[in-house]
Design a binder for these strands. Structure first.
Lengths: 140, 140
DNA sequence: CCGAATCCTACAGGATACTG
DNA sequence: CAGTATCCTGTAGGATTCGG
């Protein structure tokens, strides 16, 4: 952990925070590591929002975990492991994950067709963050 | 989120990793730090999914960032800063965030009424993870 | 086996009016 | 000001059918 910088009550130190008189609580401590969160472009181009949007639907997270755990998985087998997902939804989820660089799709021109999905390196680099998120969720 | 119950699959003991012969790629390297991701209960009780659900809608992330940055913010002022949010949606988002322990709501029995929102400590502990997510998103 | 095409429902999110 | 109460629309997700 890094040194927590306690904000003193005296005025004069840079005050980006609105405090009314008689206010009992100070704002949260904001370590430097999170400063970039507030420097990002305000509206819709927030990278955090984009990242969340890339994994926040009903199935994507489970898809990524299944592929990361099992390596190479074919479409039908993946659908079987994700109990209850419809083929249409799984297809579109995989398409988006592929577009976002989180999974790799490999199709073989065979009969019957064979399509393999695997997690990408980009997905692998996301897993430690998800693990932290898991730890965070378990705390509360 | 409506999931139709299907018959539970019970394939017996299965090798955790399926590798076909002639496969060129090995599964991703999985550091120990992410092992807990695959040990969690499979279906709907995944803590990661819960965490994501708590912040993955159109406004929650911006609400949390605004409150974390500005400290104490009243309802109307918050709505002004989140350009375009309707009060119904803002209200329900704040209710959920409060229920999940991410924001604190303080109402004063005055006329006109005054209600203050602030980010919780639990929210503060989430920010570093969001910062990492931001860094991750910037990499791809 | 791997989808694409179609149809359908539930719900998130928005617009507006009204209240204490 | 800080909400509720309605009404409305777009879309995520599911069921089913068809095709290469």
């Amino acid at each position: 952990m890094r040194a927590t910088r306690r904000r003193p009550r005296n005025p004069g130190s840079r005050a980006p925070v609105v405090i009314r008189e008689g206010d009992l609580m100070t704002p949260l401590e904001l370590p430097d590591a999170v400063a970039t969160l507030f420097a990002s472009p305000p509206p819709d181009d927030c990278p955090v929002q984009r990242a969340i949007d890339q994994i926040a639907d009903k199935w994507k997270l489970r898809i990524l975990l299944a592929l990361s755990r099992d390596g190479v998985v074919r479409f039908r087998e993946l659908q079987r492991r994700l109990d209850g997902v419809s083929q249409k939804v799984l297809t579109s989820a995989l398409r988006e994950l592929e577009r976002d660089g989180l999974v790799t799709r490999t199709a073989y021109a065979e009969i019957p067709p064979r399509v393999e999905y695997r997690a990408s390196e980009r997905c692998a680099s996301l897993l430690p963050i998800l693990a932290q998120l898991q730890e965070w969720a378990s705390r509360g």
